[in-house]
């Protein structure tokens, strides 16, 4: 091989040399001949692929059993990063256009390290979140090239007591793992907002929004509805991770009560939220991909 897995991981920002070395020890070689599949859409995930040689064609299926080309990836590229963030099924076909070789970071081994709070695993998850957030913005620009008009941002919020947050959120996935210390840490890290339908929330430094009640909606400049977030959802995850506005408007779709986090709290609560943030990024990206598939299908038909 032309390089090793440790070198391949240099493509991701935010990983130190020791972290790359630790992660490379999780990697196993793979070889797929031309025409073979690294994985297919809907397969159960098995890990992150780092390509050392060859070309991989990434395609998505559409209604009518058509395919839409998503990317051609060559040496140095990685694919399948969703699986390390949410462990879900594959969202696209990845076929070897030529003989391909590289490394695969095993999902189960990575998840074990992440659960144990291993710094290298946490750093890789953070780097992958940043990558998915960037791709998400690219996809929105592809769906609707026009930039949204500027917004002033939300008005200042007010503090919310921990028991109110717990009462609002404790039945929702992810938050159902929170204990009293988590609710206290969460309450101390952000502020509550109430907003009426139609109000814009984007503009300024993007926080991570947690929807307590009601609903928020991302809308492209041309009016295309991109995402709707209801109670218990993390909204604006891509903008929050990127630290810059998403290329769309964030609107209150139903009279809403929200909680805004300027930054993740430190410690275990922050780690729990970071895991939820990774899942939210992937979930949003999958939904955006289906929006694109719908537009393609309706246009083709």
């Amino acid at each position: 091989m032309a390089q090793d897995a440790e070198q391949a991981l240099m493509r991701l920002d935010g990983l130190s040399a020791p972290e790359r070395a630790a992660l490379a020890r999780l990697a196993a070689d793979f070889v797929v001949p031309a025409g073979g599949a690294l994985f297919r859409q809907h397969d159960q995930s098995d890990g992150l692929y780092l390509i050392d040689s060859g070309t991989v064609a990434v395609t998505g299926r559409t209604p009518g059993d058509g395919h839409v080309a998503l990317a051609q990836l060559g040496p140095g590229a990685m694919l399948g990063e969703f699986c390390l963030l949410d462990g879900g099924r594959r969202s696209a076909d990845a076929l070897a256009a030529t003989d391909c070789a590289g490394w695969r970071l095993d999902l189960a081994r990575f998840a074990g390290l992440q659960d144990a709070g291993d710094p290298a695993a946490l750093a890789l998850a953070a780097a992958l979140r940043a990558q998915v957030a960037a791709r998400s913005a690219d996809l929105v620009r592809a769906l609707s090239p026009a930039a949204p008009d500027a917004a002033a941002g939300p008005p200042p919020g007010a503090g919310l007591p921990a028991d109110h947050l717990a009462a609002r959120l404790q039945t929702f996935p992810g938050f159902d793992q929170f204990g009293p210390a988590d609710w206290a840490a969460l309450a101390a890290a952000g502020h509550g907002h109430g907003a009426a339908r139609g109000q814009r929330l984007d503009g300024g430094a993007p926080p991570l929004w947690i929807v307590l009640r009601g609903a928020l909606m991302w809308q492209a400049a041309d009016g295309l509805q991109l995402l709707v977030h209801g109670p218990g959802a993390l909204a604006g995850s891509a903008a929050f991770v990127a630290g810059q506005p998403w290329p769309a408007r964030l609107l209150v779709r139903e009279d809403a009560e929200m909680f805004a986090l300027p930054a993740l709290p430190a410690g275990a609560t922050g780690q729990r939220l970071a895991r939820m943030l990774g899942s939210a990024l992937v979930r949003d990206q999958r939904r955006l991909t289906r929006v694109r598939a719908r537009l393609v299908a309706m246009e083709a038909a």
Binding site: Q41, R61, T62, P63, Q225, V228, R287, V291, A293, R294
Partner: peptide
Amino acid sequence: TRDVSTWVEVPEYG
């Protein structure tokens, strides 16, 4: 089908 690859969603409020 459990494999949802060839299905898409009607948009919310649509």
